[in-house]
Nucleic acid binder design. Sequence first.
DNA 1: GGATAAAAGTGCGTGCACGCAAGTTTGCGT
DNA 2: ACGCAAACTTGCGTGCACGCACTTTTATCC
Lengths: 211, 211
Amino acid sequence: MTTRCTGLREQKKQATREALREAALRLALARGPEDVRVDDIAEAAGVSPRTYNNYFSSREQAIVAAVTADREARVAAAVAARPAGVGLAEAVVEAIVAEYTDPGEPARAALLLVTTHPTLREAFVDTATELENPLADAITPRLADTDEHTARVLAASVAAAVRVALRRWLRPAAPSPSGLVVPSGSLPDLLRAALAPLEPALDAAAARPHR
Amino acid sequence: MTTRCTGLREQKKQATREALREAALRLALARGPEDVRVDDIAEAAGVSPRTYNNYFSSREQAIVAAVTADREARVAAAVAARPAGVGLAEAVVEAIVAEYTDPGEPARAALLLVTTHPTLREAFVDTATELENPLADAITPRLADTDEHTARVLAASVAAAVRVALRRWLRPAAPSPSGLVVPSGSLPDLLRAALAPLEPALDAAAARPHR
DNA sequence: GGATAAAAGTGCGTGCACGCAAGTTTGCGT
DNA sequence: ACGCAAACTTGCGTGCACGCACTTTTATCC
């Protein structure tokens, strides 16, 4: 055993993880998220309750994971896939926006469930934190000095900005002091707006500034 | 009741909060953090265990709060206090570095306790998140367009960078692939290094770029 | 191919976070 | 000065996260 377990082992692990995610989401959609016990999820997935806890450290995490799937990996892959010529900021922003745009009909109901329930909202926002590591790995080779730590800081900042955007998106139209209620625009717009302030930092650290 | 409760009420609340912090730290220093029960902290502070939970949502949070006190407010105040002429990036960096430098002897033992124990380390790192709101309020008036949301993003990014620096500081000399172990320098240096990549973003958004 | 080590699953016990519905204190209006 | 409403405290009950020790499964090495 050195670095990679490509065998049946990892395969089964992903299978149970997905079974748990799916079971959690299905039950939450059926009875509402508050009336789902951990034991129910475990039983529906065919594992022990203790095993459930080896995969997810909170009930909400399991439900939300069914919606977010492995978004982090896809974002990281998308950033890595962009040609080296394009600016780092643009690459990151587009990768994230693409990943967070409406995934189509099936997930619609699940997303409504998540956005409706406050506890799930917070868990959903927190999933953006998991972007940090994959994103750091993806942007490291694009930096001027291939500095591990700079990449970490930038990735963490991007993740933080995404969280801000998500919170704003989920905040149901806070009344402004001027009396107007801003209807908090579409998620892609909010993401672009939240990431815009970070673009100078990203391009300043990038290998070849985009102009 | 409008906005401020300046009376005896708020005063007592802060008193119990401090009593809980102090009790938690004292007990943790005495027996080690693992052997401190929530009931003990509550009893030592003279409140019910349930009340303890109204102030802190985890045991670690109470212990760590004794070390961090109300650091967030001081950082925000320090940023607000810097003259308007100086660059935003410099103001923020100096305020944070100043706040995270060695506070002197008394807290030394407590900090050792926190850095020693893994569970407390994580809680300690997480306290940096609380910088977000006060910091956002402090930098809002210094922006070119007094945009609430830009300030939020920048503050969240700064907080994220601080967390990265703290994690790196607490990481006990990870062995590098080249065989060398880097002794992970002093905290002020790490903070400056972590915040450096964000400086372009901060100064780009600032009211008057510092040069 | 069987022995052996690593890893995942499981049962149990403990401490804890938190909702809820009282009881108690504080502050304000008249 | 009195009383009322809001804020804080408390006890209780429930579900849950997680450490620990143990069993079962999987991968590797001779």
